[in-house]
Design a binder for these strands. Sequence first.
DNA 1: GAAGAGTCTGAAACCGTTTGCAGGGCGATG
DNA 2: CATCGCCCTGCAAACGGTTTCAGACTCTTC
Lengths: 342, 342
Amino acid sequence: MAVTIRDVAKAAGVSPSTVSRALSLPDIVDPTTRERVMKVADHLGYRPNRAARGLITGRTGNIGLILPDLANPFFPSIVKGIQQQAHIADYQVFVADTDEDPTAELGLVRSLAKQVDGIILCSPRMKPSELREAATYCPVVLVNRKAGSIPAVAMDNADGMRQVIDHLAGLGHRRIGFVAGPRSSWSTKERLRGLRAAAAAAAVELVELGHFAPTFDGGMESVEGTLIGGVTAVIAYNDLVALGLLSALRDRGIDVPSQVSVVGIDNIQLSAMVHPALTTLDIPKEKAGRTSIDLLLHLLGDPAAGTGPARELPTELLVRHTTAPAPTTTSEPSGRRRASRL
Amino acid sequence: MAVTIRDVAKAAGVSPSTVSRALSLPDIVDPTTRERVMKVADHLGYRPNRAARGLITGRTGNIGLILPDLANPFFPSIVKGIQQQAHIADYQVFVADTDEDPTAELGLVRSLAKQVDGIILCSPRMKPSELREAATYCPVVLVNRKAGSIPAVAMDNADGMRQVIDHLAGLGHRRIGFVAGPRSSWSTKERLRGLRAAAAAAAVELVELGHFAPTFDGGMESVEGTLIGGVTAVIAYNDLVALGLLSALRDRGIDVPSQVSVVGIDNIQLSAMVHPALTTLDIPKEKAGRTSIDLLLHLLGDPAAGTGPARELPTELLVRHTTAPAPTTTSEPSGRRRASRL
DNA sequence: GAAGAGTCTGAAACCGTTTGCAGGGCGATG
DNA sequence: CATCGCCCTGCAAACGGTTTCAGACTCTTC
């Protein structure tokens, strides 16, 4: 059915080997035959079977991508960056979504390992030991996580957290809450660390409000702790959580930003669409995706790989409309509420 | 490096053929040898090379998925449904994003065709003739589009539009606007047709407000036409457009829903998160994804395919807080505005 | 005890490509 | 004119599986 290298060879009056060479190593074959072969191949619409090629070269031309949840708007942006860069280098991308199930990750790596040249693990939730095991199955690059010597592209969380704290401290906030994400999330730990350091440096108090699902609903749940904590500003694990919190605050009649300031992280599209627009820490998502491919191709020794890429990407605070100067301490709007609820 | 069928054969003291049979046709091999082979295979961690298998069976176990824009929250939901169902049937999914470029679609089909057993084209923007051409390269299933005899899963747009119109008509709206999506979008035409029929049946006037990009920004741009049109309710091409429109209306101090009602389509997650929550037509996105896989596997004659699946999926209007009774005709808030702008 | 049927297994061919190796043709050189 | 080297090309093996075909063996049956 499909046109094979033999069909081309026969039509061009040469052997299959010559066709193969004409197409992949053009300079070692005679110009006139090369021309003829290419013309015939083009005319017949010949496209090499990548599986067959992969069988002998050991390269599939495929890359695997594993991530927790495509429905979280943070990830599609990364996927887009990855795809862009991968297609440029003529790789195809397998995408697999684990539905936030950490136990599914390793299984996916195993089943994917044979079919791909390398795997990108995006915000993996698995344990470090599993991560090491995963890396033994096939070349692996991490995004949003670091582990030992496995190549990784991460964000400069320390600097990002400093920017957020400095912004809030500059507005007069002295008691700042942090709504943490899942315990299994490396970013949670990393951001917490950055926040503690930055809070200490700015001489503000950091209140850790507990762990919540990295979703809108998780953010809504976190409102209780926020009120109890008696803080004037809250930093959310990500924008989705921030939006949930915003919504719950509104339901309780608490105004943002005059009574409480809220800061998100990620800068998902949505964060600019709501009202009031969310102040958030921009994460270069597409850039991270592209960089991870660069890193992987580099690891594979592919000549199409870019130059040694930056592995720690800068972030940038986008001040929009959910942050404002801290309310005067005497009114203490959330403190009153807290007392009544306890 | 990797463990092959020959390694297993040697370790089990049988020939490769027997190993192959033991694993794929268990009942034609002696139970004791089968046991032994399976144990050895398991112990060695043997996993058949799918590329090699595909070479001889002609099946890759891969499915291609082409869609316009992963950043549009409508699509990730579909992708999730597709992946779920595909993984159950032991297929892997290649995802490719065209960045809303209709000319890129056919090229992607061509380059993917050889590596997959079938392709799912999600909301394709290409012309019918190109669609027919695409279907000649490999088995194709359409989502959100119909074209000739190509298998497709679509939404019951006619009924959905009827629900929307009936809802608005019931609230007393007599002049209703529609913000259309891209001209190349099949859904736009389909919805327009459904709206015209429903509007005629309900004896309300339908005002077509022109074509806009299917994005938040597109929605913002559409606000001009909305005001000029002198309508009391607007139906947007999708939720993203509706949200953009909502935002622009707010910027101009026009209250929703008391002055203008707005209805979206898709029910993306986000639509429930904003304030006021968007009234929208729910589209069963994950279900559509799963159905498209059923359809494709059926087409491929795969026994894992579900029963002959429904191809036209029902929609459901979710009444939230952006629709309300039409303002009394005497005030005509947008009419005044219109006059001043013209 | 021989023939026949039936069950299980192994040898070999094949899928579509790449690549090491050898050989043919040709020009240059002595 | 013989020899050497070089450029180009074809043959054949290999990649890791599946599948056809034939043969070995066991078990009936007369």
